[in-house]
Design a protein around this nucleic acid. Structure first.
Lengths: 224, 224
DNA sequence: ACTAAAATGTGATATAGATCACATATCATA
DNA sequence: TATGATATGTGATCTATATCACATTTTAGT
């Protein structure tokens, strides 16, 4: 098993692993492929693996008191659900593939082992957790304080700039999911997208989106 | 300097430090006392210390696009702002004392040093970060989905159960701050508290609060 | 290719909660 | 203890956004 040794998508933490450690990792690591819509792990199930997304787009979501809440869109390569695997026995949230996704399941014991024996690895994991938490703080405050069109505008820019790195792309979410992500009703998302379309900020047809006026969209995202 | 060696409020991570490590920590650690209202660290300032709250109540808050957002109420003993010290050069949020607070400033270098040389310490920090993040996810979803009276009810129960461990206590926040914490306007917080009072759920007089009907308050917190 | 199911668009209506306006109470400091 | 400043309570609006209702489009399974 040399899959990890020659993996081209190693995490910044795994870059600190030596050859023998990578070999060990390769032995206790399972590679799985998920299709769009497949559940990678489920809230309330026992959490026993660290998940590493080699490639693909994943939504992290949680059942809230009223409806499903999408907490985050994660793009490989990145770790997934370290907090819920280490912080609790049970998954506090679910992860579902939004596109075809390549995932490695890493046994929690070997992960702990690396943390214990390789301080550079441990430190990278800590940095990773810290950055994630900061990102999440910002996202949360934005969600809480911006108004709905601002949240939708922000999300469109997020997909363009962070995920697809182009202004023309296919939305990987339904209107309903976009609502769960931005804290809007399905109907409101439709309306806001229509408005953006009519004002010439975007060009939308089904899921395919083209951003036409990034500056104005950014202004809307900024000022609520 | 033996303040850490004989400290009665050591963190779960610091319990894994040996005598010589504690001595080292004692040398590069400064103890400071803050009064109610004092700023412990400020958003956008350079972050160069890990802060450990030995005793006291602290609010973590962040300037949002519309208003100030209180992200969390932290109670000593606990670490404060590990994410912002390790995850960024600059503080992503502020911390302000809500009561008289005893704080230790720990040099980031010695902290990193412990992470590198003491794997148990590192692992405890990781567990801590993970649990914090899970807590924050839950708080965020609650904030986003519950309606205002639910958020206020939840906060009252939080103070009673988690912070003061009694049903009669003095609110350490103004109505305005309670709004910043629960995402309500100052006026709305007043109204909600008055309602709770009139319905006999609580007894309120200024900042002093007595919870009379915990079950019903819990129901309100649950069902929005 | 056909049909049921699911997703989407859009108007009308309802409402939670913000904002405004002002009265009252409490606090801090000279 | 007097006095300005700050915090709080409460009614009257106003508005963003949810909800409802239904038409239309798209998708998936046979």
């Amino acid at each position: 098993m040399e899959i990890c040794k020659f993996c081209s998508k190693r995490s910044s933490a795994a870059k600190h692993l030596g050859n023998d450690e990578l070999e060990k990792l390769g032995h206790s690591c399972v590679e799985v492929s998920f299709e769009k819509g497949d559940i990678i792990f489920k809230q309330n199930a026992l959490s026993s693996n660290i998940i590493y997304v080699r490639e693909g787009l994943v939504k992290i979501h949680m059942a809230g008191p009223e409806r499903e809440q999408i907490l985050k869109i994660a793009k490989g390569p990145s770790y997934l659900g370290i907090p819920t695997t280490i912080g609790d026995k049970v998954n506090n949230y679910s992860a579902t593939a939004l596109t075809k996704t390549e995932v490695c399941f890493i046994d929690i014991h070997i992960f702990k082992d690396f943390i214990s024996t390789n301080s550079e690895f441990a430190y990278e994991i800590i940095v990773n957790l810290c950055k994630n938490e900061l990102g999440h703080f910002h996202r949360c405050v934005n969600q809480l304080q911006k108004q709905s069109s601002g949240r939708v505008a922000e999300t469109l820019l997020f997909f363009a700039d962070e995920i697809f790195k182009t202004d023309t792309f296919d939305l990987p979410l339904s209107r309903h999911e976009l609502g769960d992500l931005t804290g809007n009703s399905r109907e409101n998302v439709s309306r806001i997208l229509s408005d953006f379309n009519n004002e010439g900020l975007i060009n939308i047809s089904g899921k395919s989106i083209q951003i036409l006026n990034k500056e104005k969209l950014f202004m809307i995202s900024r000022n609520g």
